[in-house]
Design a protein around this nucleic acid. Structure first.
Lengths: 172, 172
DNA sequence: CAAACTGCTTGCAAAACGAAAGCAGTTAGA
DNA sequence: TCTAACTGCTTTCGTTTTGCAAGCAGTTTG
């Protein structure tokens, strides 16, 4: 993570901040996985990030103003990581990446369902989800819509597939 | 560039293919810079990619089916690199990255103008530009719209700023 | 009072990166 | 016809990044 700037191109600058193999996965887990503590981020995802890499990326993301950190009142050593507004606004990038990967790469059924829902929902759904993230991470009050939130819908769809697949394999 | 798969998550899989500091810049140059030959890609952009890295990334992108390569009839050693359909469909990711970078990072005026136009144009403009890319890179005939193409408009806006800034500095 | 858990650091080997030079062939100009 | 410039890369080698494993000081739980 050097701080040498290669060019003033917006795509290049964005890549210099989040253009590595881990940063966006950490943000994904903050967004979709409800992981807010170091240990949750460390062990929660399937990819298995190393502790030193995670620590380094969290520093970088903090320095870039994409996440923030505050102490957890319930435990003197715990920190709570939150997305900032600019972190939340990375959602469309993640959504487009998810959509492209879903379309062209060998995505697992379980992990692909959220991508599909986000694609089908389009920018309108993304905006609603970003509002929910603002409520969760920034404490911004949101006027509640009727029915389950986007986050809940994504989670429910994921759980449904997991349950269905578990039933299938245990029956076989 | 190992071929170990970390997880079946669509975002992760996408990052495994284009989640490094150079691949998306190469694609950017193919899309917006009209660079189609190795030497053009090597020297054209401000970032200055090394020849070995460029060669490696071109191989990776070829293997991933994001670009294709054919011989240039005008020169026995030249190859012409083109975007495939799945390469062209990376545009929304680049556009979102450009938009985010434009909003939050110290983008230069000259290199930021395209990002701004793409943001303002939105998905509709992206779709039109993708159609133009299909014509250029895939040879797909496009029904011509009236007026300049998206590519031409982006280029013109960029040139205008370059000219304006050149005039300013030479007058100073 | 011990065991488990907290965020994170350290050591070290392996892999990736990147600048520079080089190379076999091709082409353009004199 | 000879040469200089150009073609798409490859090779070499020093530096940086990655990533596994272990460790650590402090905190909380039972």
């Amino acid at each position: 993570m050097s701080d040498v700037q290669r060019s003033g191109c917006p795509i290049n600058l964005t890549l210099e901040v989040v253009g590595d193999k881990w940063s966006l996965l950490i943000i994904r887990d903050l967004m979709f996985g409800n992981r807010r503590h170091y240990r949750e981020l460390l062990g929660g995802s399937e990819e298995g990030i190393s502790s030193n890499i995670l620590a380094d990326r969290l520093k970088t993301l903090l320095a870039a103003g994409i996440i923030s950190r505050e102490d957890d009142p319930s435990h003197k050593q715990k920190g709570i990581y939150s997305l900032t507004e600019r972190g939340i606004e990375l959602l469309p990038i993640l959504a487009q990446m998810a959509g492209w990967g879903y379309k062209y790469l060998p995505v697992s059924e379980e992990l692909g369902i959220r991508a599909k829902l986000l694609m089908d929902g389009g920018p309108r759904m993304w905006a609603e989800f970003m509002d929910e993230l603002r409520e969760i991470h920034l404490g911004v009050k949101k006027r509640r819509k009727a029915g389950p939130s986007v986050g809940e819908r994504l989670q429910a769809a994921y759980q449904k597939i997991v349950a269905a697949n578990k039933a299938r394999t245990s029956n076989a």
